[in-house]
Structure formats: C-alpha cells, structure tokens
Design a protein around this nucleic acid. Sequence first.
RNA 1: GGCGGCGUAGCUCAGUUGGUUAGAGCAUCGGAAUCAUAAUCCGAGUGUCCGGGGUUCAAGUCCCUGCGCCGCUACCA
Length: 674
Amino acid sequence: MEKFLVTSALTYANGKLHIGHIAGSYLNADIFVKYQKLVGNDVLYIGGTDDYGTPISLKAEEENVSPQKIVDKFNKSMRVDLEGLNIQLDNFSGTSHPNHIKDSQDFFTNLYDAGYIIKKDLKQFYDEKQKRFLSDRYVEGICPFCKADGARGDQCDSCGKLLDAMDLIEPKSKLSGEVPIIKDTTHWYLELPKFEEELHEWLDTKTYWKDNVKNFVLGWLNEGLQERGITRDLNWGVPIPLENTEGKVLYVWFDAPIGYLSSTKEWAEKKGEPDRWKDYWLDEETKMIHFLGKDNIPFHTIIWPAMLSKQKERFILPHDVPANEYLNLEGQKMSTSRNWTVWVEDYLKYFDGEYLRYVLAANAPETKDSDFSWEDFKMHINSELNNVLGNLANRTCVFANKYFDGIIKRPEEFSELSKKTLAEVHKLTDKIGKSYSNYQVRKATKQFMDIARIGNKYFDESQPWKEVKTDKNKASETLYVCLEILRVLSIVSSPVIPKSMKILHDMIGVMIPITWDNIAKESEEYSISNVDRLFRKIEEKEVEEQLEILKQRQKENIEEKSMIEHKPQIEYEDFMKLEIRIVKILEAEKVKKSNKLLQLKVNIGGEERSVIAGIGKDYKPEELIGRKVPMLINLKPRIVMGVESQAMILAAEDNGDLSILLPDKDVQEGSEIS
RNA sequence: GGCGGCGUAGCUCAGUUGGUUAGAGCAUCGGAAUCAUAAUCCGAGUGUCCGGGGUUCAAGUCCCUGCGCCGCUACCA
C-alpha cells in the first residue's frame, strides 16, 4: 500500500472561490485523491486558507472589521463551495488557526538556530499618517543624480540609476502624499544561496516531474538564488519568536506552506489521535504531492523544501509538484479585479457541481493554458455526458426492464464479439488507472468516455431489439455485457463524476463494492431499479444566459470603475499653466530595448521636438506619422531610456488600451488647446 | 529588450524516446438503424503540421533563423 499526503495550494482568504482555483489545484487534487482511495491507498488530503498579509489587513480596515472576521467569512464560503463541487478534503483549515502560529515560529527558530536566517538593520521610510512602513517602491522624490522629480525609491526612471530610497531628495509617500519619516527597522532574511547546491542535487532526482515545472525551477536556480526577506512590519501575521520584535511578523509566503503541516495536525487532533500527523510528515514512505497553479511553483520547489530540510524533525520533502497552467474564460485571461471569472457560488445556483467537474476535467490546463467557454461547457455535457454515457445507461436499463423485468444473469458463454468487447474495455481501464496516477485527468476523462463509446457500438452491432425476438438468451447476453460496461464505468469514472456514478452503480443493482480491484470481478447478476436519466441537457438559452451574466458583470465593473476618485478642484489659473498644443508627428520609431516606447519627432508650428510615448503596444510607428495630436509641451523634459522626452502625448486609457486624442477638424499645428 | 511558452482539420485539442498512408471530439455532408435522452452506429472528407534553412536513410517531433501570438519582467501612457 502506498501512502500519500496531498495538498491543494492554500487559497488567499480575501475572496471567494472561482473556477480558476478549481481547475488549478482543487479538482485535480480531488480526482487524484478519489482515485487513490479507490485503489485502497492511504491518502490524506489537506488544504485551507492563507489568512495573513497586507491585502487582508487593508480590506479589514476598509470594512471596519477585524481581519479575522474577513478571513472567517471567506473560509466558510470556500467550504460551502467545495462541498457543492463534491471536493472532499480531509481537513480544510486556515493559517490563522491557533496551532499554526507555533508551527510557523518553530520553523523560523529552527532555521535561525541552524544559521540560515540573518538579521539586517536598515533604515526605512515610515508613513506616520498611514502608520505603515513604506517599501521602496512606495516612496518617490527627486533623484539625487539627475535631479529629476518623480524618482521611485528603488530606481530613477529618468536616468535609470538604481537608488537607495534614503538618498531621495524631498521624499513623499505614495500612499498619503505626506513626507515620510525615517525609522530604523530590522528584518530577517532567509539565506537561500546557502541551499543552492543541495537543492540542485535534490532536483536532479526529480526526473519524473512535469516539464513545465522542472524548466521553471531550473531557470530560477540557474539565475542564482537571492536572500529573501521573510519578515514584515505589520500586525496581521505570525509574530517573530525573538525578543523585542514587536510589530514584526512572518511574511506570508514563509508561513503559508507551513499551513499544510498545521492543518494536518489539526486533522489529527480532531480525530483524537494528536500524533497521527507524524505518520505522514515524518515517514519517508509518504509521498507528499502539492497541487497548485504555476505562479506558486518557486515557493514549493525551492523555498519550501529548503525550509523543511533544516528542521529538527526530519520532515519529508515534496515528492511531486504537478502544477497546472491557467484557465482562461471565453478566450480572455481570467481576472478577479476585472470580475472576469465564474464564481463557484454563482455557478452552483444554475448547474450541478458534477457538470463543472466533468468539463474542467475534460479541459484541464495540464500542459498549457486552456479555455473555458459556456458553449464548450454545453457541448461536453450534451454530446458526451448525455448522448454517449447517459444514453448508454438509459437504453440498456430501459431495455432490460422492458423485456427481462430488470433481471440480467451472467451468461454461461460469451460470443466472440462480447469477449472482444469486454477485453477492449478492460484494457482501457488499465490505461485509465495510469492516467489518474500520472495526474492526467484530461486523458482519463477521454478514455472513460471511449469505454462508453465502445458500449454504444456494441449495442448497435448486437442489435438486441432483433435478438429479443429470435433468441432471447442472446439478447440477455448483450445486455449483460452492456451492464458490465456500465459497472466498469461506474468505477473508473467515479473520481471525476462521483455522484452520478454512485447513482448509476445503484441503478444497475450490483452488490460488488466500488473499488478499483473489483473492476475485474464480473457480476453474477444485475437487478435494475429506479431508472432515471443520469444527466440533463444544457439548453442554448442557458448558454446565452451565462454569457449575458458575464457581460452584465463587465458592465457593472466599468460603471464601478467610472466612480472615479476625483482630484481636488483647481483654479482656472492652474489650468492655464498647462500648455497643450496640437503637434504634427513627423517621425516615429520604436525605442530600442523597449517594446512599448516610441520615439516621435513632432512639429509644433515650426519648432521641432523629440518625444517619448509609451503607446507602442497600441500604435505602430507608421500609422502615427502625419497625424496631428494634442501634446502637453511645457512639461519638464525627462530622460526615458536614455532619450530626452520634451513633451507628453495625451491618450485615453481603457482597461490598458490606449487611444490617442485627435482634433475633430484639421487644425494648424501649434494651435493651442484651452 | 530579457526569460519562458505556444503556432497541427472550420472549432477545441492529442501526437510518446525522430519511424509506415498525421489522429480524436464537435461542427458539415451521405447512409444504416429504431432499444434509447432527436439519442446511436457506419462512411466521406478537407491539413504547404506558421514560413525558410539544416542534421538524418527518415523530422509535426532535433538544431538554426524569420514571422505571429501569450505570460512574467523591464520601460510606462
């Protein structure tokens, strides 16, 4: 018997679950777990929410509630959603649960004692109004080298020099606009470079990892690892277990994976066997498998193993990290901020969770990004689940009821066709098992559907509706074979569509329990009852309805966005300070080493200027030449990528797309805008 | 610009370590069948496998190069 510890990436507790989460790390894990349980292996499936960090703390402030309240709300909503999709974790915890703190602190302490964490004193800007330390990119000021305004704390855009935020002249906080004060602070860093060799050796043993994962990790390693800060000045997080470190917490990515361990411990405690977690985490026979999306790869393949390897207890290291790619929606990248996704909660108001399981399994982003569309959803449900699988079950059962009172016994002998058909089916079941254990959900789904296709073909070729009139035994044999196929299907498909396959199993009245080994055990008798359709069809108007909902949400989003935070009112004199004139674009070419910047030469009524414009994604140089556009021309010149820009083009932004403004009539270059 | 990925039938995609006439599902067309959820089964296809070059007895697959698209990153309106 094999032993598995399976995890789905902890989900950040500042929102609800959407189909991206499901396709990325929950469904594939759940299918794997259900398969392993069928086989009879020892599997523990662990997950939860990632509860700490700035975004949650900010959200809590906005809503004027405690961060814990936010976290609890989303944790609960996720549990409900997971249940609706029949995704069954053995424990779904959250990193704000009490025992997580101790575990995380122990990790820190052990790494600290072993000499892998160093302390660095540094000076950092502090925004007194926001009561927050400002990371470098949240400070701007005047560049100490080129004296340009608007330099960020980490780098000056004008001269391109890397800066120390402390050298900025007239620094300002980007959060409040106030002048920040300088405060001493201390942070702790994980010395990843010390792990490079070990990690390399360890990764060399992972020959069986997916290519996309391995490439990603090797890319990281080859570039050389950097020390990484693992602490923050924040009050919502795991406090650092050192003296006099009030206000310092662990950075979320450090404590998040430890959530797998603390969640396991919580599971053991709930079971009343508090030491059971050791059976998994400390037994090197356990295969720990992390299901996650590709953005999470480095943490689980580099930092997490590094952390695990230096603990007092001899923890197992990840055995495999089958990362999925991304799921797009209707051809566009999913985005929660743009509300371009399907929330599980919403989905469940309209459709059965089984359908989503099936469609996402058939179309899982295993090797590359894949696309979810409602039209495709309908196709998979109607022409596969209904027409192929559902109809096979229905035609078989209805026929058996009609002519045999629902009782079909195993025949003494089988025809050549029957033998061949059953053999073919069993050959496929082996392949399906392989697919499941290799996390190839997509393939497995296709393969079990092929079994149903074999069934339909066999039914047609045997023509039991004719046999029943000439040779009733023959017809009974045909039905028996079809029922065998259905029984096999009810097992091999159950990791993907567990609920329907349980119904099918009950419907054909088999006494043999559902286990993978029992696939080979032919039933002596079938006794059919409660025949009902397994799946319903999706109508075109339902597709349209869903598309309409998406469109509607987009619209709301745009409206929401148009609730712009207005800038303070200004005087007419303020406006008069701006010199905006129509200029004619004489030349345009791409700026080297940039794919977004264009260098323009423009004519302002006789005078020529050179301008850098960041519109290269939306406009080709040639289509700009000759155009007359408005530009702000008394803006202080700036050097961008080594070229001086002596004016600024005016463009409207719509969701990242830029549109330059054009005068309604042809006007003389140099005309002033007022 | 740097790193990574992708480009196969009308659509969505499979194509294992290079090895016969390049596949599946959907859609389309023709036929069979009538047990069944207008479901099923059989048949017909169509492809410069993005272009160009190279390695090889043999390239969709490996190498170089060009084009196009996507992601991260930098530059930013």
